[in-house]
Design a protein around this nucleic acid. Structure first.
Length: 850
RNA sequence: GCCGGAAUGGCGGAAUCGGCAGACGCAGCGGACUCAAAAUCCGCCGGUGGCGACACCAUGAGAGUUCGAGUCUCUCUUCCGGCACCA
């Protein structure tokens, strides 16, 4: 055996072995339990980054464990290949997004293969291929006919300079990122998926999803946001007609305290009033600029302006002014709210700012009046006061009574309200899946018939930042109506890329089927048994996929509601960043080019760049181009090999934590693999005979560590499994002799425990030392109960909860003997005092309370 | 702003049910080997006091429950993720 560990040749040899045997090809087999292990597929952005390596290493560890445990495992890989970055790269390099994307896929595929993941590459798919997106389109037409996909107006960010729609990400401080022009909101027709039709189900099913982290379920629950309240109408006169201004409130008990109503800038009342009020029109225009995201809305200064119109309070008949508020969102609820300044913090601030009346109608702990400043107690539930016939009622009684009265007048009723909104899928972009609709002047919106699918996206275009190139391409949009045959216009919007990623997991079962979206193989493999991906996807992607699974089930394509049985949300990969301050301009220095100086205790004193310049430590954060703190996985693999990269990633942190990158610790992981190799290289050398006591102790140590490792594996705490492998090697290495029954058993356990993490080196050593032909087909190691037997137990002894020593007692000792021995050993602390009680935790601890 | 999460030595982390805080590793310090370096091996390694046995303090801050709290409860601070057109 080679005395030195050379990862390159070991890894090539192992990968060739797996490729030749097609070790990771998965075939449906109802005789074996199946395990579908899936990591979120990557966006082909260029090269693999550490987040990818982490994600796929975690998935691969699970995949290989389950293979060794005898499951029929599927682990596929594909490409989330449509999206905005390809268009940006296209503009920057004048290269079509398709070419850029396919080149990136080729690079990243090579990198993934170099990492030795147990992937079934025969099932590879890319969402930008017509064979894939044809079925996006096909399903869309099905949902469209059912009304689960429909058209309505939606609001987009409009860059007036480039005459183009911008993504939220492309709007910086209210301006277009390329033009700097003030971005406006525009209403345009868009297609939506009616995800709200499943709101109730998506919420209720969360309670049955035991394999998902509570944290993610809670976030989804709050996102769906079920609330019970009352829908209230405030009548108003417009052009001689009486219309109703609807609002939703969860605090109908405060209805009598309403002193104004506020509507969104896009609300019909605001639009109407602006026609005759120039100042208001300017304010409405103002509202359409500025905040783009909900976060920005929530944090911006709340402003408003009166429309000059009044509505009528549905119970009291009072006249209330109608205002336009920049904080009222048209896309949320009714686009209007009732203002109760006395009992709502935001309304309170608004009323103070604009001199609107404040009318207290709830008795609260701070008293009946509502003096400045705002107190949270004002918003608490209480007894109605100042509310006419509702005086004296509590929250629920008041809501019931008011809802009943409103219902009698036809001005309201109880309603369940959802925070969840329908999913707008139209994008005015080129690099995405075309929406399969033809607009016919006589037939309206006609879905493209099945025999004309897919609507192919031309792959040669280069966008220029001024709108969607498809919309400027008559060859694409000029068509005939599938229904009447007359000239018609094809839809040029493409789908949100979340559509592509909402069902890819099912397509992996049958990526080669050109006659159907899914077939029986999907029913075999689905649901995904273990899904792994970043916590940043906790809401949108996962919720959309849950919706899609239901929609597909309704089409008879799947027979499960929930697509992912178990979910593991991995943490982000972070790195330190450093900059040098040159004339006030920060130049970011890659951490690989920085040397830190430390004091005698290892504390960081300062840092210098490779060229000797002093650099400033800027803390730890996500790896980014702007801070030049990315660590290239390829450089790491080239230097140490894939196994070291995999081992470090697993060992450095539990999967759900963030992982802080450290080049020095990588070195330590490499050192461990070298030690393992060195141990194996001398394994068959003659040495001293192992003494009985040492044999017993070594076996006990190895099997206890294995027991713990298997427990940790069960809770996906892989970092301590890697530690366990190190502990086993330490235990083996304490004996200077070679192969005997104890070390043979121990090394066999070590190599199998480590095989999922560092598969190449374990593959090699397993064969080299004659354990078998392929470690991947060896059974998963289980501890031997006989090795775990012990005659004595070591107790921790405490006095008044403070640890004072330990005590070794025979396993057979009874309570009386334990108490006696403990008191005796604790003479020093107990003497002269009265023992009040003795707490004994069997097999672990004795606490004497004096 | 709202929703969710996290905080333990110089660093990453461990501690299964509330039961020895700091496993395993990194960095650091001391030593062996070497002409020297690298590699490797051995030892030390939370803080304060003490020659020492040992004592006290210590899991972001403050309170509480308990024989006993990193773990449970409340309040607060800081950081991270998401907020519907980044993926």
């Amino acid at each position: 055996m080679q005395p030195q560990y050379h990862p390159r040749s070991v890894e090539q040899e192992a990968q060739a072995f797996w490729a030749e045997r097609k070790s990771f090809r998965s075939i449906e087999d109802s005789a074996k339990p199946k395990f579908y292990c899936l990591s979120m597929f990557p966006y082909p952005s260029g090269k693999l980054h550490m987040g990818h390596v982490r994600n796929y290493t975690i998935g691969d560890v699970l995949t290989r464990c389950y293979r060794m445990r005898g499951y029929n495992v599927l682990q596929p890989m594909g490409w989330d290949a449509f999206g905005l970055p390809a268009e940006n790269a296209a503009m920057a390099n004048t290269v079509p997004p398709a070419k850029w994307t396919y080149d990136n896929i080729a690079t990243m595929k090579r990198q993934l293969q170099g990492l030795g993941f147990a992937l079934d590459w025969e099932r590879e798919l890319a969402t930008c291929r017509p064979e894939y997106y044809k079925w996006n389109q096909w399903l869309f037409t099905r949902l469209f006919r059912k009304g689960l996909a429909y058209k309505k107006t939606g609001i987009v960010n409009w860059d007036p300079a480039d005459q183009t729609v911008l993504a939220n990400e492309q709007v910086i401080d209210g301006r277009g990122w390329r033009t700097g022009a003030l971005v406006e909101k525009r209403e345009i027709p868009m297609y939506f998926f009616r995800i709200t039709a499943y709101a109730e189900e998506l919420l209720a099913a969360l309670d049955t999803m035991d394999g998902w982290p509570e944290q993610v379920k809670l976030m989804q629950k709050n996102w769906i946001g079920r609330s019970e309240g009352v829908r209230v109408a405030f009548p108003y006169a417009l052009g001689g007609e009486t219309k109703l201004l609807w609002v939703f409130t969860t605090r109908a008990d405060t209805l009598m305290g309403t002193t104004f109503c506020a509507v969104a800038a896009e609300h019909p009342i605001a639009v109407h009033a602006s026609k005759t009020n120039k100042q208001l029109a300017a304010f409405v225009e103002e509202c359409k600029r500025g905040a783009v995201t909900e976060a920005e809305f929530a944090q911006m200064e709340k402003t408003g302006m009166s429309t000059g119109l009044y509505c009528t309070h549905p119970i009291s008949g009072e006249k209330l002014p109608v205002w336009v508020g920049n904080y009222v969102l048209m896309g949320y609820g009714e686009g209007a709210v009732m203002g109760v300044p006395a009992h709502d913090e935001r309304d309170y601030a608004f009323a103070l700012k604009y001199g609107l009346p404040i009318k207290g109608v709830i008795r609260h702990p701070a008293g009946d009046s509502v003096p400045k400043p705002w107190k949270p107690a004002y918003a608490e539930y209480g007894t109605c006061i100042n509310s006419g016939k509702y005086d004296g009622l509590g929250y629920q009684q008041a809501v019931d009574a008011i809802a009943a009265d409103l219902k009698a007048k036809g001005l309201g009723e109880k309603q369940v309200h959802w925070r969840l909104r329908d999913w707008g899928i139209s994008r005015q972009r080129y690099w995405g899946c075309p929406i399969p609709i033809v607009h016919c002047p006589s037939c309206g919106d006609v879905p493209v018939p099945d025999d004309q699918l897919p609507v192919k996206l031309p792959e040669h275009l280069v966008p220029d930042g001024t709108g969607n190139p498809l919309a400027k391409m008559p060859e694409f949009y000029e068509t005939r109506c599938p229904s009447c045959g007359k000239p018609a216009k094809r839809e040029t919007d493409t789908m949100d890329t979340f559509v592509d990623s909402s069902w890819y997991f099912a397509r992996f079962a049958c990526p080669d089927n050109d006659r159907a979206m899914l077939d029986a193989r999907a029913k075999y493999w689905m649901p995904v048994d273990q899904y792994i991906g970043g916590i940043e996807h906790a809401i949108l992607h996962l919720l959309y996929s849950r919706f899609f699974a239901r929609a597909m089930k309704a089409e008879g394509l799947l027979d499960v509601d929930e697509p992912f049985t178990n979910l593991l949300t991995q943490g982000m990969v972070l790195a330190e960043s450093y900059y040098s301050d040159a004339q006030g301009r920060r130049e970011w220095i890659n951490p690989a080019d920085v040397a830190v100086t430390r004091d005698a205790k290892g504390k960081i004193l300062g840092a210098k760049a490779r060229d000797g310049r002093e650099v400033v430590y800027d803390g730890i954060g996500t790896m980014s181009k702007s801070k030049n703190n990315g660590v290239d996985p390829q450089a790491l693999i080239d230097k140490y090999g894939a196994d070291t990269a995999r081992f470090y990633i697993i060992f450095a942190s539990p999967p759900t934590n963030t992982l802080e990158w450290s080049d020095e610790s990588v070195e330590g992981s490499f050192r461990f693999l070298r030690r393992l190799w060195a141990y194996c290289a001398k394994f068959d050398n003659p040495g001293p005979k192992m003494a009985d006591g040492l044999a017993k102790a070594t076996r006990f140590e190895i099997h206890s560590v294995l027991k713990q490792a298997n427990f940790d594996l069960g809770k996906h705490q892989f970092n301590t499994v890697a530690s366990a492998a190190m502990k086993i090697l330490n235990a083996l290495d304490n004996f200077s002799g070679g192969r005997n029954t104890v070390t043979q058993d121990g090394l066999s356990i070590l190599l199998r425990l480590l095989a999922p993490i560092t598969p190449h080196v374990c593959h090699h050593l397993w064969r080299e030392l004659g354990f078998g032909e392929d470690v991947m087909t060896a059974p998963w190691p289980e501890p031997d109960p006989a090795a775990l037997q012990q005659d004595d137990i070591e107790y921790v002894v405490q006095v008044n909860g403070k640890t004072r020593g330990s005590l070794t007692l025979p396993k057979s000792a009874d309570r009386k003997q334990i108490e006696g021995s403990a008191a005796l050993s604790m003479q020093k602390y107990v003497a002269g005092q009265i023992i009040k009680k003795v707490v004994i935790v069997p097999g672990r601890l004795i606490n004497i309370v004096v």
